[in-house]
Amino acid sequence: MTTAIREPEQQQELPARARTTRVGDAVFRRTALGAALLVVGLLAGVAIFLVIQGLPALDASGEQAYGKPSVWSYVGPLLFGTILSSALALVIVTPLAIGLALVISHYAPSKVAKPVGYLVDLLAAVPSVVFGLWGIAVLAPRMVPIFDWLNDWFGWIPLFAGPVSNSGRTLLTASVVLALMALPIVTAILREIFAQTPTTQQEAALALGATRWEMIRMAVLPYARSGMVAALLLGLGRALGETMAVAMVLSATGAIISFDVISSANSNTIAAAIANNYANAAGLKINVLIFAGLALFVLTFAVNFLGRYVATRGQVKA
C-alpha cells in the first residue's frame, strides 16, 4: 500500500533516461514487489479463512463446544494453557540462551565457540516429533523426582501445589521441551547481537579495569537490551505455536484452567488441542477448533509485533 503511494514521487525524481535503460532495476523491483504482495496476500487469506470459518463457532454450545456452555469457555482455558506453557518455557530458556550465547560470543575461544554454535544451530533441525518422543520416553520419567522436590519445598506456590503426576507428562515437562525447542533460534539471535557490540565500547570498559563479566554488564548487555527482548519474544512466538511436541508429551485433561504445572490435571494448549481433536471433529466442532486457531493466530501476531516494536524502538546508537 505504501509502495503504491510512493511510486509516483520516485518516478518524478528520476530522470527519464535512467528509467528506460535500467531493465534489471525494473525487473528486480517488480519481482520484489510481487513477492511482498504475495506474502501479504497469503497472510490476509489465512486471516480471512480463520474469521469466516471460526465465527460460526460463536453459536456452539454443549456437546458441540466440547461440553462447555460456549466457545469462549472452551477456547479461554486453552489460551490460558498456551500462554502458561510458553511463559514457563520462556522463563527456562532465557538464562540458558543468554548464558550460552555469551559463552559463544565472549567467553569460549573461537576453536570451541564455533562448533558449539553449529551444534546449537543443529538443534533447530531436530524434528518436533523427535522432541516429543524424547520428552515422553526420556524426559518425563526423570522429571518426576524433580517434581517431588519442587512439591516438597515450593508446594506453597500454586504452580507446584501437586499432587505430583506419576507419569511426569505435565505442563512443566512440556514447557521444558518447548524451551529446548526455542533455544536454538533465541541463542542464534542473541549470539549475533552480543557479537555486534562495538569493540570501542568493550575496550572502554576493559580499560577502566572491568573484569570480563563487568565488561559484559557495562557494555554488552546494555547495548543488546532491545535485541534481547526481541529475540526472547521471537522464541516465545515459536513456543506458542508448537504443536507436535506438546500434543505428544502433555497428558492433557482438556480445557481446564489449572495453575498446577506438576499434577496430572493439566490445561491443554490450543495447538495441541486442535491436533488431537481435529481428526474426529465434525460440524460445528470444526468451527470451534478453527476459532481456537484464530485466537492463537491473534496471540502470536501480537507477540511478534511486540517483539518488532521493542527491537526498533530501543535500538542504541553506537
Partner: peptide
C-alpha cells in the same frame, strides 16, 4: 586509557 574515537557508554 583514552581511545581514538570517543567511546562514552551510550546508555
Amino acid at each position: 586509557m583514552v581511545f581514538q574515537r570517543p567511546n562514552p557508554f551510550p546508555t
